[in-house]
Design a protein around this nucleic acid. Structure first.
Lengths: 169, 169
DNA sequence: CTAATGTTGTTGCCTGGGCAAGCAAATAGC
DNA sequence: GCTATTTGCTTGCCCAGGCAACAACATTAG
């Protein structure tokens, strides 16, 4: 019994370090993003992602289902976010011609204006505050290291998608 | 005016890729953690962290302030989490002898039992599902790449686990 | 045509978290 | 000693998100 000090499995030093770094990042990053966006545009990151997705969609319009998929969001969460955006006039719901139960979400002129205003500080924050400390080679390395983790967390996550995708396609 | 297509700043391909990987990780990781812990021990990650911190503390006891610092949590969040844990008998509040306004949080026997039971699946999940796809060298690289990002997000985040703020400096 | 099933969104209820206000003990100023 | 400030923690109020129940329309089977 003397050798049996720990009942629980242990991580070695390297694993523990990576684990802590991942956890800390996952904790701080969303908070920092929401803080920046809320201060600069009264938007949370999730809402910004909706505007961004609509902005690059044909006719600035998407179906709820598409939007939910693009934002990796369950339907209720998206529905409520669209409620909020619609109440502010940034977005409008339009009945879908072909299908009576589908809803088209359309980015209003005001919504696009808000997105245009919100984006520069957001991109700046991402580049300067977050990515700015790494060289391009390091960024590439980071991306490749995170990719397998993402794949294991969500097998459906594909490399190219998501909110802050660049504006001009 | 023809050349002026975009008013908003852009990220290059490398930056955008890293950005997306970071965002996706930050989105998926906490959800996966809470899911695993909730299923296996009816704890969310934050609560698990509290038990874990108490478990390694001298006398299985910490002051609220210490705990909040250890969990990188604002005071109200910790207070409410301790409320929940105390209601389940996993933790108890004890008045602090020397200071009438301070509260010592103590891990009960039942709390330690819960932590012991919750930990193996948690560690397994972390090692196998999340870190398992990377070699030790890659884990080291990942840690070093995330470190500067963490530092920029929170200047107070200390790289090493416990630089124990010993009283006598 | 009608009934059963499937699809698409929305609403309600509950929980966790942020922030500001509050309370109580300790400390500093007078 | 007595007020004023500071420290340590808690509570209340509000918002965002998860899940299940629901409503509305579409589709398929009989």
């Amino acid at each position: 019994m003397v050798g049996m000090r720990q009942v629980v499995p242990r991580m070695d030093q390297v694993q523990a370090g990576a684990w802590m770094a991942l956890m800390t990042t996952a904790q701080l990053l969303p908070a920092a993003l929401d803080e920046q966006l809320t201060a600069d545009a009264a938007l949370i990151n999730f809402e910004y992602g909706i505007l961004a997705a609509l902005n690059v969609a044909p006719d600035q319009t998407m179906r709820m289902g598409e939007l939910a998929a693009a934002a990796h969001s369950p339907a209720p969460r998206l529905s409520k976010a669209v409620n909020r955006l619609e109440a502010r006039g940034l977005v409008e719901r339009v009945a879908c011609a072909g299908d009576g139960r589908a809803i088209n979400v359309h980015l209003t002129r005001e919504g696009r204006r808000t997105w245009l205003q919100a984006t520069p500080p957001h991109i700046e924050f991402a580049r300067d505050t977050i990515l700015g400390s790494l060289t391009p080679d390091q960024l590439t390395a980071l991306t490749e290291l995170l990719q397998p983790i993402i794949s294991r967390l969500d097998p459906d996550a594909c490399p190219s998608d998501h909110p802050p995708e660049q504006a001009g396609r």
